[in-house]
Simulated assay, not measured.
Amino acid sequence: MADTKLATFKCDADVWEAFKAKAEANKTNASALLKKFISSYLDGRIDLSQDEVKHLDISTIATKDELAALRQELLEAIERKFAA
């Protein structure tokens, strides 16, 4: 297992609570969302070189499990299409 690091930072309490609530409303949690953001930033899917983010739809950044599920759905749809 890879080494993990507990990261802590200061954030306005109201902002943090709103962030957690929005994450939960999108069926995730703050920790998973932050880890997804960090991975996406590091591999270049998120570019913050302009000092601001005009629009970032984090839901478009799929995890490996999400991609695997989409791949399976696609394969099943293709199979149904050509089985008919």
Rank of each mutant, 00 (worst) to 15 (best):
A18V: 05
I58Q: 04
S49E: 05
Q72W: 01
A21V: 00
K64W: 02
Y41F: 05
D14P: 15
L67I: 05
D57W: 07
V15N: 10
A68C: 03
I58L: 14
K35A: 12
K35N: 13
I38W: 15
S59T: 14
A23D: 00
D12M: 07
S49I: 04
Y41I: 03
A69Y: 05
S40F: 00
N29C: 00
V53R: 14
K35E: 12
K27E: 09
L67M: 10
E73I: 04
D14H: 13
K27P: 01
A25D: 03
L56E: 02
S59P: 00
D51M: 10
A23R: 00
L34R: 02
K35W: 13
W16F: 12
T63F: 01
I58D: 10
E52I: 13
A18Y: 05
D47E: 06
A69F: 06
F9C: 09
S31N: 12
K35L: 13
K64G: 09
L48W: 08
S39M: 13
Q50K: 12
L56R: 01
E52K: 15
A23L: 00
L33Y: 03
S49T: 07
A13D: 14
T8P: 08
A25M: 03
A30K: 07
A25C: 00
R71E: 14
I38T: 01
V53Q: 11
E24Y: 02
T8V: 07
E24Q: 04
K27N: 14
A32W: 08
L42V: 09
A23C: 08
T28S: 15
A21P: 00
K27L: 08
F9I: 07
L67Y: 04
A32V: 11
A62V: 06
K64C: 09
K36W: 03
S40E: 02
D12N: 07
V53Y: 15
I38H: 07
K27A: 12
H55L: 14
T8H: 09
T60G: 09
E24D: 06
A7E: 08
I58R: 08
E52S: 12
I61N: 04
I38M: 06
A68Q: 12
V15D: 13
F9N: 10
A23N: 02
T63H: 00
A62L: 15
S49Y: 13
Q50G: 04
L48I: 03
L56Q: 01
S49Q: 06
A68W: 15
